[in-house]
């Protein structure tokens, strides 16, 4: 019995599933991370993922190719980011309430538009989603080939987002400006840099990544759009950012760890399903997120200007 539980770990399919489950979490976590580094908590994440999932899928369903769908999702994400920034950065409205408002708004308007476009479909229609690409030579490797090198292009794109965000945050003047905007916006202002503009751009980029995380669900992990399909992944990503102490590389680690536990939970459920009801397995991701936040709480160093609106010439 115990051996069965261990055997899961030497199964290449388990590792491949871990990689797949990590993608939407990874994209969303990186997106949230960029927003928060700029000083803006973006709780619109859950809704932005939902509308990204809907727009990416619908674009392809309407006849466009997959890459156009990905682009459309990113653009819609960026627009909702702009809306969020309009409220929180320019108007200085409460980031908590704005975020919840954006989540409710983005998901409900997505559902409304989906129903308008596809009025009465009981079984959700499907698209031809991203197909697995076997990377030459590498995919022939035993074990590693199946675990790592037989994924879709979207999967590789999601993992390439890590070096992209690392480069953006650590190697570009914009990344530096984002970090200062989140730590000490007055210093940025003193350099003659537009704090509000930097924050807005960061929230837009971050929101585009969140929308891609949602689009991954409908365009690579599944091939249909369901109501409520994001299912709390956005909130889990917010917890992962804290767990990762706002570092992209630790976000990768967190997303993989989390996805691994999730993939394991599904397999353990099959092994222990008769003894333990499935609902308890489904609770695990949410409970683990809370545990991760509590564990990280002691060492947590929030960006100093997180949640604080900036107004020119106003001291805090």
């Amino acid at each position: 019995m115990i051996l069965d539980f261990l055997e899961v770990l030497v199964n290449a399919g388990f590792w491949a599933a871990t990689i797949r489950i990590a993608c939407p979490l990874l994209l969303a976590t990186l997106g949230e991370l960029i927003c928060e580094r700029a000083g803006v908590l973006n709780l619109g994440i859950e809704g932005i993922m939902s509308i990204g999932a809907m727009v990416g899928w619908t674009t392809v369903y309407m006849g466009a190719d997959l890459s156009t769908g990905v682009l459309a999702a990113a653009l819609v994400g960026a627009s909702f980011g702009l809306l969020h920034a309009g409220f929180t950065v320019y108007l200085g409205a409460s980031q908590h309430v704005t975020g919840i408002g954006i989540t409710l708004f983005a998901s409900s308007i997505g559902y409304f538009a989906f129903r308008l476009l596809l009025p009465s479909s009981t079984t959700p229609p499907k698209i031809t989603a991203f197909q697995p690409l076997d990377i030459p030579i590498l995919s022939d490797l035993p074990f590693l080939g199946e675990a790592l090198f037989e994924h879709t292009a979207f999967t590789y794109l999601a993992f390439l987002a890590v070096p992209f965000v690392l480069w953006l945050m650590n190697r570009t003047p914009f990344g530096l400006a984002v970090k200062v905007a989140g730590e000490n916006p007055m210093a940025l202002e003193a350099q003659g840099i537009d704090v509000l503009g930097v924050r807005t751009l960061a929230v837009m980029i971050g929101s585009a990544l969140m929308a891609l995380g949602g689009a991954y669900l409908t365009m690579s992990a599944f091939d249909a759009f369901y109501f409520g399909m994001v299912n709390g992944r956005g909130w889990i990503a917010v917890a992962l950012v804290i767990f990762a102490s706002w570092r992209p590389s630790k976000a990768l680690l967190g997303a993989l760890l989390f996805a691994g536990l999730d993939a394991y939970q599904v397999r353990a459920q099959q092994l222990a399903g008769a003894v333990i009801p499935y609902q308890f397995f489904l609770m695990l991701p949410y409970l683990l997120s809370i545990v991760a936040m509590v564990a990280a709480a002691k060492s947590t160093q929030y960006p100093k200007a997180l949640l604080i609106p900036f107004r020119r010439g106003e001291r805090h």
Binding site: H96, W235, Q279, L287
Partner: peptide
Amino acid sequence: FMRVDEVVTTLLTNFVIILLVSYLLEG
């Protein structure tokens, strides 16, 4: 006491409780 953000913890708890209800009603 531990400065754990309540927005995320309260949101995540919703999912846990609804799964608990689902378990009790099916079990």
